[in-house]
Amino acid sequence: MSLLIETTVNGDQREFVCEADETLMDALRNRMSLTGVKEGCGTGDCGACSILLDGELVCSCLVLGAEAAGRTIETVEGISDGDELHPLQQKFLEHAALQCGICTPGFLVAAKALLERNPNPTEEEIRYGLAGNLCRCTGYDKIVRAVQAAAVEMNGES
């Protein structure tokens, strides 16, 4: 059974058609060309497909496309303000918080959710807050530092 779903993605009203058992991740990638949403596992274990659904951090591989009806979605493509990068994006670049970059969209979305909830996280809070996102390249060191630096900048301390 195909469903027509109306939803809001990165501020835009969108419509898409999906199968009843199709994940939101597949719908975002294949029906709306938002390939910044990455599939690393499809089972919620890597966080590469992280999005905000009504402001809540979720793995889009564990949400059905059908569930998005009437809800608000934010993906990595919606993080920057026009050509102005979000402080997290800027700090990820400056701190080399990415090597291969496949996990980066998920980390950015998760880190954004973390800082919105907790603008002054400790290192431990950052580490636990990002534990749902796997990175195999960096050993997380530079990711944690980038998030710390972004927090400082967002709090206007720099």
Partner: peptide, 15 residues
């Protein structure tokens, strides 16, 4: 190549 990777533009194998 960083900018494309923090904005979701970079194209990987499945993209």
């Amino acid at each position: 190549d960083g900018i494309d990777k923090v904005t979701g533009r970079a194209r990987y194998g499945a993209d």
